[in-house]
């Protein structure tokens, strides 16, 4: 922008807004956000935009979107600190509820699992799955040990950099919560993952078993309590009798 420094209104012009435009190509749409492909200062990036939901009351919607952007940024940072890989954050626009972050090249764990199911025979598939599961469990355990629960663990929210199952990148921390985390919340977090796996991949009980194995190894002293709670959460489920 061309600004005359002697102009008294120059400052106001700057103050007016932090307008920026970035090239954006729609990439995908999830439940709560749109993802755009973009370049940020020459780096491949994505823009995650949490748009207003028409079905919600506007006040509630605004509150939630702001809260989730904040939660996501904080969650990603905390995860990095404890050595769980997440995409690098480039820019956060609190006004438009947008986060610009690194574009992780590779595929999601969901795609990877279905791919190796096709390519490998049964034994290899199981071995691959369990080594991946242990690693994933370790990562989740690390997060929990640092009092972060992800809140929406699914195989689509786990990315593999360059398709390599050793390089796990966790994304989508919008529902994460931090600080005062009880064993109950950790248990629920694991339960969410278990259900997500069961509903997306058939015959993959092996995967969750090894996730728990990895989790137990890494989770420190809180892990045992969380696993006990998991058992309890499983028992709750739906009302077993459907009277009334």
């Amino acid at each position: 922008m061309d600004v005359d420094m002697n102009d008294e209104t120059a400052e106001e012009k700057y103050e007016e807004g932090f307008g920026f435009e970035m090239d954006r190509k729609p990439m995908s749409q999830g439940a709560e956000a749109r993802i755009f492909k973009s370049m940020y200062l020459g780096k491949p990036s994505i823009i995650k935009q949490r748009f207003a939901k028409k079905y919600r009351h506007s006040t509630l919607d605004e509150r939630l979107n702001k809260h989730r952007v904040r939660a996501e940024v904080k969650g990603i940072m905390k995860a990095k600190q404890v050595g769980v890989e997440t995409p690098a954050l480039y820019f956060v626009d609190g006004e438009r509820n947008e986060i610009v972050m690194e574009r992780v090249e590779g595929c999601s764990a969901k795609e990877w699992i279905e791919k190796i199911r096709k390519e490998n025979d049964e034994k290899e598939f199981k071995d691959n799955l369990s080594s991946f599961g242990i690693l994933l469990g370790t990562k989740v355990g690390k997060l929990h040990a640092a009092s972060v629960v992800h809140g929406d663990l699914t195989t689509s929210n786990v990315l593999l950099r360059d398709g390599n199952p050793q390089q796990i990148v966790l994304i989508d921390f919008g529902l994460c919560s931090q600080m005062k985390i009880t064993a109950e919340e950790k248990g629920v977090d694991l339960y969410v993952l278990e259900r997500a796996i069961a509903s997306t991949h058939h015959d993959s009980e092996q995967l969750f078993k090894s996730v728990l194995e990895g989790y137990e190894k890494s989770g420190g002293k809180g892990a045992k309590g969380a696993l006990e709670k998991l058992e309890e959460v499983r028992m709750r489920g739906r009302k077993r009798d459907m009277i009334g």
Binding site: G151, D152, L175, V192, R195
Partner: peptide
Amino acid sequence: PYTVKGMD
């Protein structure tokens, strides 16, 4: 309070 955990 607005509590959504995964799909629960």
